[in-house]
Design a protein around this nucleic acid. Structure first.
Lengths: 193, 193
DNA sequence: ATTATCAATGTGAGCGTTCACTCATTTATT
DNA sequence: AATAAATGAGTGAACGCTCACATTGATAAT
């Protein structure tokens, strides 16, 4: 191997990730990425087919890997309450470990989600599955699974978004138990006050 | 007045709104908008300074107007519970009335929020103000206002997002009482299980 | 009633710029 | 010497925007 190509690819990917988050994907040019990474434009095309493919690889790899991680985790527990708590803690840890990556997944969703085929497992489908099981077991009252999933996801995702915008200062992991409790309250209410 | 210019401006604005939501702002060209609206490119510049200004006008007008609407509404009620319920119902009605506009505000946020100065009143600041008052009155337990606002906003916003993606079929207004109940449960829990 | 005038509105070919991407060449490693 | 990696000037296409000109309709003068 000459001039570690893998290191260069990683460097380009990380640099692109940061710039995409700061400026948006379309607003970031190949020259921007190459310049910030300290490589020539041509080098980028030795490691990625195109700018689109770079953006997609950055998205799909991490988006799908996170879904697998969540699914593997939920299998370790028996009740919805435990599964949900574990997933939320994992989510918070993921955010704290790499906030830039999280922001990218959030940002790129609109553009890239069209390329996600229905049979792919995402964080949303895992959450819906777990909630549906919990309802079938009578652990929480019956309601529309999609609605329940949206509300739970909303609690966690919006807090993460606030954190990404520095509207919240604490680490997400410090807030995970509050989030778990709030999500549980949302699920155990049946909607009639 | 010759060849109703106001009508043309509205036509261009609505067309741009739809295309921006479908394809993204940067991905939509002036030619796209002009073509879809059935006018020449030059006509667009007769009514808007630039593409950026068109996107900003579309955003700021509606974003700030909605915040004013919410603030006016909350003033009509005395308790946090009533204020919150009224605001959520208003939010749902707004979405159902013009889902495309809502999607645009959601989509454009990332790009346009930098131009929103801190002293401008937004839906988020109104929500935070109302929640802070409710806590001061002892109506709900004390907790970080930003965190509480994020969770409440998340519940409503994510359900709206699901609806925008057709993951939920009912009108948002049909779900408003469920959302109100869920948000209330989030606020009245103190986070310690 | 007819015509002239004028400002508002609409047009689209063309301009300068920027962009993603290519490729002949150079550099580093084995 | 052979190969993998890196380079950056160059290319064609697409973009936002301009501008000289055409069209329209209201108003005023005849």
């Amino acid at each position: 191997m000459a001039r570690d190509g893998n290191h260069t690819k990683e460097l380009i990917a990380r640099t692109a990730l940061h710039l995409f988050v700061e400026q948006g994907i379309t607003e970031t040019t190949i020259r921007d990425i190459a310049g910030a990474a300290g490589v020539a434009e041509g080098t980028l095309y030795r490691h990625f087919e195109s700018k689109d493919q770079l953006a997609w690889e950055l998205f799909s790899t991490n988006y799908l890997a996170f879904a697998r991680e969540l699914d593997r985790l939920q299998e370790e527990y028996d009740t919805l309450q435990e599964k949900l708590a574990a997933m939320i803690r994992q989510f918070c840890a993921f955010f704290d470990r790499d906030p830039v990556l999280f922001s990218y997944l959030l940002l790129a969703q609109h553009a890239q989600l069209k390329k996600v085929t229905p049979e792919m497992q995402t964080a949303v489908t895992v959450l819906q599955k777990v909630i549906a099981q919990g309802m079938a077991q009578g652990e929480v009252p019956e309601m529309e699974v999609e609605l329940a999933a949206a509300m739970v996801l909303g609690v966690v995702l919006e807090v993460a978004t606030f954190k990404a915008y520095n509207r919240i200062t604490q680490d997400l992991s410090q807030l995970s138990e509050t989030l778990v409790a709030s999500c549980w309250r949302v699920l155990t209410g049946d909607g009639t006050p």
